[in-house]
Amino acid sequence: MMNNDSLDPRVNRLHLSDAAAPVIVNDGENWNIYEVFHQEKRGAHHEHVGCVHAPSPQLALVFAKEQFGRRKKCVNIWVVRSADIPAFEVEDEDMFANNADKTYRDASGFKVMEKINKYKAQQRGEK
């Protein structure tokens, strides 16, 4: 029997029923999340580009190549399970604030020109 209910052949051929039986995806069914880092050219840093869901590191690499390596230039990819990345809390950002007292760690903390000019002025005075 021909069934031409829809322009979508799947609806016709599979005789998808109208019975609205709920479909529920169980927790964990979409596997683990892996963070993806791609490298644009040899020698460059690997850079974080996003995530994929995968059941294993091997498949994470396959999915990452498909998702992030199929258009722009890419020579290598790393993946790592999100759960395996230790990170500071976002709220702790203030601990990275620069300490204004520690000018001895900056080039700007050393005023050499002042000293040179003072020395040169002195020399001129002695002549």
Binding site: I33, C51, I85
Partner: peptide
């Protein structure tokens, strides 16, 4: 056995 969580 794998742990599940959210992206970083």
């Amino acid at each position: 056995t794998a742990a599940d969580m959210l992206p970083v």
